[in-house]
Design a protein around this nucleic acid. Sequence first.
DNA 1: CTTGGAATGTCAACAAGACTGACGTAGTTT
DNA 2: AAACTACGTCAGTCTTGTTGACATTCCAAG
Lengths: 164, 164
Amino acid sequence: MAQGHSDNLLFLTDEQLRRAIEAMFFAYRGFTADPDRILAEMNYGRAHHRAIHFIHRSPGTTVNNLLAILGVTKQSLNRVLRTLVEDGLVDSRVGQRDRRERHLYLTERGDALERELSDAQRARMRAAFREAGPTAVAGFREVLEHMMDPELRRHFAVAKEGDR
Amino acid sequence: MAQGHSDNLLFLTDEQLRRAIEAMFFAYRGFTADPDRILAEMNYGRAHHRAIHFIHRSPGTTVNNLLAILGVTKQSLNRVLRTLVEDGLVDSRVGQRDRRERHLYLTERGDALERELSDAQRARMRAAFREAGPTAVAGFREVLEHMMDPELRRHFAVAKEGDR
DNA sequence: CTTGGAATGTCAACAAGACTGACGTAGTTT
DNA sequence: AAACTACGTCAGTCTTGTTGACATTCCAAG
């Protein structure tokens, strides 16, 4: 709506956008660097982190739910889940209502790893937020939401309302 | 829960940070989705995109420079570069001053692909920026910069000064 | 000048983690 | 009873990261 501002014309130049694209690339690397270091020590990868994160967020979620959120194939997810269950970090329980489903929970050890990983990730995020200030943070989140695929964004908006 | 308080204690809760972490994850997926589709059609991957992007940004850059920016091993980068050179998208010229170095340039076809990829990526970025507004964009970039590793951030700051 | 070391880049082999396709099994729905 | 759904698995491929070994080139110390 605020069209016509000379600001607006400048601020959408390809050059500015190119810089933003690079910033996104570099920032994402920073974003994953700390958890990656922890995971590498125990022969896990980012895929394990993602599974652990979303099981933590939604305990009792099913394999199919996780599949939809992570956007990978079941074969790919299964490989990761199998190792996590074998290593005693995730508990997979047959559904009561529908016994075809497997409901996933973190064990105590799974929860401990989740905390270790997200503490590291949050520490960096918190530092960046503090340095940038509240206004910048609001803008940051606003732009991120608009960058998601629309479907995921709805998913995300629901999650924001609180955890059910 | 009461929204609207931008006071520093509330705004740094672990719950808020967790949401920001997920937003970052989902947004990055959106960020790469469009180029990924184009690349998949021609049997390339994200690694090819990154190489093309940074060669475009700094024509004549050496393999070592690229290595430092991309943060991968030279062997990994080399595989990508080899296919790009074979396919006639990148030109690799032996250095004049130091003949150990290879200076990298995009060919016309390489430039065409670069434009196709970055057009797609910029389109989404531009849309997100427009919807979020200038203030949000400023905050977005501010936070991103603080999220990078310090060394990369300096690198980035230099690039911002203009492409001398 | 020669020689040894450092810098640069290439080749080979391997692993993680994504993918597709096919199939099996149990449970649910029609 | 038949069809569909949820999950798991086997087999094979691809991208992209890793190490290790090696060739070439440059430079500096003896």
